[in-house]
């Protein structure tokens, strides 16, 4: 049976753990707010851009830009956006599960060390690993995008997908694997939750004109400037979504850890007090019996 001293020691250790998780929770909460704002405000741009590009691609000839080319079946490149640090609930586990299930033979480009470690552990083909600071720096994302574009243009891959975590709200984040190249419709956030995050799902905006688009000065010049930008901003937005998810998930995980620790402390204190009182009663009993025996 545990002595009072053992329990005291355990209470102390649980208390210091609770202190750490509480601190992490507060840090995550403040980062979360910023990251969520960033993700939500960037979403409009990314969505509109995606819509325009999808429209354009339907109209354009296949050879109008090499990045728009539909090359059919072939090798796939996956950009895996994970976190750098752990202690964020099941975020990375869920993401990795989703990726490795559907894309077992793909080559990987990773953002975030957790993804890199997993890819190495599974002995998959790792092409490059990029580090993106927190808060997200656009120029760093640009280097990722540039690398991916070059790989695609070299012709080694027919499809580029991004595995990231869509931020829905503080409690819900869904792992997502979306096709980046060739251009296809994307879901950012989650369609059914648009109302709750203040984005109306505008059905009227998807109209495609019957006649083809005109381009000024000409199609290839327009595509040359739009498509690389498109890739940059989509990856950027996806990294933002992942960051918002990471901090939300960590905040929630740390909050539940702190709550657990607090209830554990409560239970342990109760047991400690019981034991202490039992010891006192015992002592009193001994004194009374001794004095009785002397009479």
């Amino acid at each position: 049976m545990a002595t009072t001293r053992d329990i005291r020691r355990r209470i102390k250790s649980v208390k210091s753990t609770a202190q750490i998780t509480k601190a992490m929770q507060l840090v995550a909460a403040s980062k979360m707010k910023k990251a969520q704002e960033q993700a939500l405000s960037g979403r409009h741009y990314a969505e509109l851009m995606n819509k325009v590009l999808v429209n354009l691609q339907e109209q354009a000839d296949d050879d109008s830009h090499p990045l728009l080319e539909n090359r059919g079946e072939g090798k796939e490149l996956v950009i895996l956006v994970s976190t750098d640090k752990g202690l964020c609930g099941g975020l990375n586990t869920n993401l990795l599960k989703a990726v490795f299930k559907d894309h077992p033979d793909a080559s990987f480009v990773t953002v975030g060390s957790k993804g890199r470690q997993a890819v190495a552990r599974m002995k998959k083909d790792l092409l490059a690993d990029f580090h993106v600071t927190d808060p997200v720096d656009f120029t760093q994302v640009k280097t990722v995008s540039k690398f991916v574009r070059e790989k695609f243009l070299e012709g080694a891959f027919t499809k580029v997908t991004v595995a990231f975590t869509n931020y829905v709200n503080t409690l819900t984040q869904t792992p997502c694997v979306e096709t980046l190249l060739p251009v296809s419709p994307l879901t950012l956030g989650k369609a059914k939750d648009y109302e709750s995050v203040g984005i109306e799902s505008d059905a009227d905006a998807g109209e495609v004109p019957d006649t083809g688009y005109e381009f000024e000065p000409n199609a290839s010049a327009v595509f040359d400037s739009i498509v690389p930008q498109y890739v940059d901003y989509q990856i950027y937005q996806m990294v933002l979504e992942s960051r918002a998810s990471e901090h939300s998930s960590r905040m929630v995980a740390m909050k539940s850890a702190t709550d657990n620790a607090e209830s554990l402390i409560k239970d342990l204190s109760l047991e400690y007090n019981k034991l202490r009182q039992a010891a006192i009663t015992n002592e009193l009993l001994e004194i009374t019996t001794a004095s009785l025996a002397l009479e």
Binding site: L56, T211, Y213, E214, F215, E216, A221, V222, S225
Partner: peptide
């Protein structure tokens, strides 16, 4: 290519 005025019922167009 220079300033461009757009009124309703403009032809579909994309430009930088």
């Amino acid at each position: 290519e220079g300033e461009m005025g757009v009124l309703p019922q403009h032809a579909p167009l994309v430009t930088t």
